[in-house]
Design a protein around this nucleic acid. Structure first.
Lengths: 102, 102
DNA sequence: TACACTTACTTACGAAAAGTAACTAATATT
DNA sequence: AATATTAGTTACTTTTCGTAAGTAAGTGTA
C-alpha cells in the first residue's frame, strides 16, 4: 500500500464504514436489538453478505450477538457503546439525504 | 432487487457514500480545492479509481471540476454546496474515529 | 416413523468491482 | 530529438458481491 498523509484512525474507520451495507446495518440497529431475518428483510442485502458484515462488526466491537436457544434458534443483534457512538454521524447523513437527495 | 423498508433517500445516499474511497475523497476536499495528483498523493487510492470516483461525484453534483489549460494541464477539484453540506457528517465520523479507533 | 417447516446461517459459482502497472496526449524544456 | 510533467486511460489479475441452493437442529403434522 502507498504512503499517505491521511489520519490512520479515520482511514481505518472508513475501511469499516465504507464497506457496502455496513452503515445501513448500523442504521437499522439504531432502532434497537433485531434478529437476523428482521435486518435481512429491512435491507436489500443478502444473507451471505449480512452474515459477513455482522461478523466484521462484532469483531470490531460495534455489534453484539446474542443467541437464544429457542426452537428454531433465535439470534439477536444490537449495538454496543462503540456502535451507538456512531449515531450522530449516521443521523447527519440521514439529514443530508433528506435535504439533498432526489 | 428485494423490497425493503428503508428510506430510499438514505439508501441512495449510502449507495454513493458507501463506495470505497468516496468519503475520504470528500474529506480531503474539505481542505479546499485540490488537484488530481494532490488527492492521489494524500490517499492510498490509485489513479484509476480516483478518476472513476471523481466522475461519479461530479455527476451527482458533490464535486466540481475545473480545467486550467496550463502546460501541463492543471485540473482542480472542489466541493459544491451539496458536497460541503456533508461536512457535519464527515466530522462526526472523524470525531468517532479519534475516540474509538485504536 | 417419516416428512415438512422454521431460523440462521454456509457453500458454490458466475459477475462485477477493485488493485496494479504500463501506456497516452499535449506541450515545454534541454 | 529526447525528456519531463499532469491527468488521466487501458489491460490484466485478484478480490468482493449477488444469487440460489444446501445444511443443522429441533418441532409440528400425518
Amino acid at each position: 500500500m502507498k504512503e499517505t498523509t491521511i489520519c490512520p484512525r479515520l482511514s481505518k474507520a472508513m475501511e469499516l464504514l465504507g464497506k457496502r451495507w455496513t452503515t445501513l446495518i448500523l442504521y437499522q440497529l439504531l432502532d434497537g436489538s433485531q434478529r437476523f431475518n428482521e435486518i435481512e428483510s429491512a435491507l436489500p442485502v443478502s444473507g451471505r453478505l449480512l452474515s459477513e458484515r455482522l461478523k466484521e462488526l462484532e469483531k470490531e466491537g460495534l455489534v453484539e450477538r446474542k443467541v437464544f436457544t429457542d426452537v428454531p434458534v433465535r439470534v439477536e443483534y444490537s449495538l454496543t457503546d462503540k456502535g451507538r457512538a456512531l449515531e450522530g454521524a449516521i443521523r447527519e447523513v440521514e439529514k443530508w439525504s433528506q435535504t439533498w437527495i432526489n
